[in-house]
């Protein structure tokens, strides 16, 4: 219990520090916030335009596609807000700042996570939540299902964190650094759509190898599909398992890299 309180306090301090440093540039901050919201809203509008042309996409109605899009935006927004600093690992190692993390008696991943809380993500997160709620209302989902949104979103986010851990673990083999961010963003695109629009091979990859399907599609089936219980148990299990594997790989490659005297 003590440990959790300690981590929560640290999180609060780090978060407010980040916010303060950003508010120095007040005008720019608000322009940026509005822009992020606008940006995400625009991409959603494009979906609306597409549905101007057609009624269903692979059997999915507009409201359902809206749910997928909103849920995905919510989960990627979560990642953007709180966990994006994971991919800065190569930067820390290269500049030598990494050592200060090692010296502290606090979990390594936690430290890297809170070192910089991105401001970009808030517009995305807010929009995602708004879209999801809007879709839920339009779909007439029962209230009790709404309670499941948070845990499903968290397990979806866990997959994203896991993928970013794996990517950052391999990215510091290259000198110039690998544009992991760009790759992550393109991967996020895959999560905005239902998995069955893709070819069979891609479907398998997205469900088993790089489980982007478990970021949005399968968690969404808890709300949109009929076999709720199956998905409800499967999704958190897969997320937890994948996350643990990614975490161990990440930890191992850091120790390996650091101990080889770089």
């Amino acid at each position: 219990m003590n440990g959790i309180i300690k981590y929560l306090k640290l999180y609060g301090i780090a978060g407010s520090n980040n916010l303060k440093s950003l508010l120095v540039y007040k005008l720019d901050f608000f322009i940026g916030l509005a822009a992020m919201f606008l940006n995400n809203a625009m991409r959603f509008l494009i979906l609306v335009f597409i549905f101007n042309m057609v009624d269903k996409i692979k059997g999915w109605s507009f409201d359902q596609m809206l749910f997928f899009y909103g849920f995905s935006t919510m989960v990627t927004g979560l990642w953007h807000c709180f966990f994006i600093n994971v991919i800065s690992l190569p930067y820390y190692i290269r500049t030598g700042e990494f050592d200060r993390f090692l010296l502290r008696p606090v979990n390594l991943l936690f430290q890297i996570t809170i070192d910089s809380l991105d401001e970009d993500g808030w517009g995305e997160l807010l929009l995602g939540i708004a879209l999801v709620i809007f879709a839920c209302v339009r779909l007439g989902l029962p209230l009790w299902k709404l309670i499941l949104l948070a845990p499903m979103a968290i397990s979806g986010c866990a997959i994203l964190i896991a993928i970013s851990l794996l990517l950052s673990a391999v990215s510091f083999i290259s000198i110039g650094g690998v544009p992991v961010m760009e790759l992550m963003l393109k991967m996020f695109e895959f999560t905005k759509y239902p998995v069955n629009i893709f070819s069979q091979g891609l479907k398998i990859i997205l469900s088993c190898v790089i489980p982007l399907g478990f970021v949005t599609f399968y968690p969404s089936m808890v709300f949109l599909g009929s076999n709720t219980l199956i998905y409800l148990t499967l999704v958190p299990l897969v997320s937890a398992a994948y996350f643990l594997v990614a975490y161990f790989v990440w930890n191992y490659s850091i120790k390996f890299y650091v101990s080889s005297g770089n």
């Binding site: 540039y25 005008l27 720019d28 322009i31 940026g32 916030l33 940006n39 991409r43 597409i50 970009d120």
Partner: peptide, 24 residues
């Protein structure tokens, strides 16, 4: 004028996404 570039950059992205026909 706004010192930091993040805000303007985000606005630029938003504008280009919808008004330039980049995606659709």
């Amino acid at each position: 004028f706004s010192v930091n570039t993040w805000g303007i950059n985000s606005m630029k992205l938003a504008v280009i996404t919808i008004f330039s026909g980049r995606v659709l």
